[in-house]
Design a binder for these strands. Sequence first.
DNA 1: GTCTATATGTAGATAGAC
DNA 2: GTCTATCTACATATAGAC
Lengths: 191, 191
Amino acid sequence: MDTAERLVASAQELLWERGYVGTSPKAIQERAGAGQGSMYHHFKGKPDLAAAAMRRSAAQLRAQADAQLAEGDTAVARVGAYLMREREPLRGCRVGRMAMDPEVIASDELREPVRDTFAWLRGRLADIVADGIAAGELRPEIDAGDTAAALAAVVQGGYVLARAAGDREPFDQAVRGALGLLRAAATDPAA
Amino acid sequence: MDTAERLVASAQELLWERGYVGTSPKAIQERAGAGQGSMYHHFKGKPDLAAAAMRRSAAQLRAQADAQLAEGDTAVARVGAYLMREREPLRGCRVGRMAMDPEVIASDELREPVRDTFAWLRGRLADIVADGIAAGELRPEIDAGDTAAALAAVVQGGYVLARAAGDREPFDQAVRGALGLLRAAATDPAA
DNA sequence: GTCTATATGTAGATAGAC
DNA sequence: GTCTATCTACATATAGAC
């Protein structure tokens, strides 16, 4: 891995752990084993490096989610594969975390990967729920877009609950609870 | 409002907007119209003032939620009153936001009000869902604790989605979606 | 490409006068 | 109780040598 790659990887880790405001160029350099001059040679400054790191994290998260959402043959199974995937709730979401940062939200360039990631995720989930309704698996009373937003929100909010508790259990409860509610919305809840 | 109160109120606002790491003592003083010496006279330092501000915000949030959760006579109505209450999704949750801050999570004193707030909220929601199941309003297949965690998570995650999008709509979709799923878990979904 | 030197501002606090 | 002075460290760069 060359220096520029190490800087991006270090920035990804630190942004995940400490957010944008809490991450200094110096800390990134130290973690990457690179000097000041080196960082400013490869990147224009902190916002530039952070944007590269966030685009990378967003792409990785999307690839991961894409694989999980393809697992299973029913809507409930596919959503379940996404919800129940192995996570580290106490670390939070490396993309969602950025949405709470005022400087990220204030900058179009920094907010873009975050916005696109969740817009894409909600769209994918909405398609799966809509397919489930069309196939007669899910009750037609539920709205596909609203349900998709709720499912995406449960994961993001689960991170908040787990970190607040200092314990992963609330996260696990939240995703189990969401899946339980989705099963209740099936035309045959016993399935 | 005396100086100490103004300092706490200013700290509450800034912690909400910028988080713990992003809030400086100087910024708090300026917003409160107080000098350095004044702040260090009333509080031991930034962590001490922040802890006071967070306890205040936690108490206010809890009082608000307590009122909403008492509205209505069925479980679905009470949860609905809580979910659909007027909020400002783009500002995020002033308590939940703190859970993403590494320095808050690392300090027992700072994390305490956040932990207690969500433990209390999940408990209240779980009681309401359990009552709904006991009354025959909600299907017994759903777990009260898991469902409560999912409902609390939807609100917190809704903030993330709205801020990511730069638009309140995903928040509104998420709470509507959660309520729709809860209605589907009613023994009489048409009600 | 990487290094060291330098610069300006802020973070977070202490000391002591008033 | 509040003010001003002072302090050490860090944030975020730029300049120019190697």
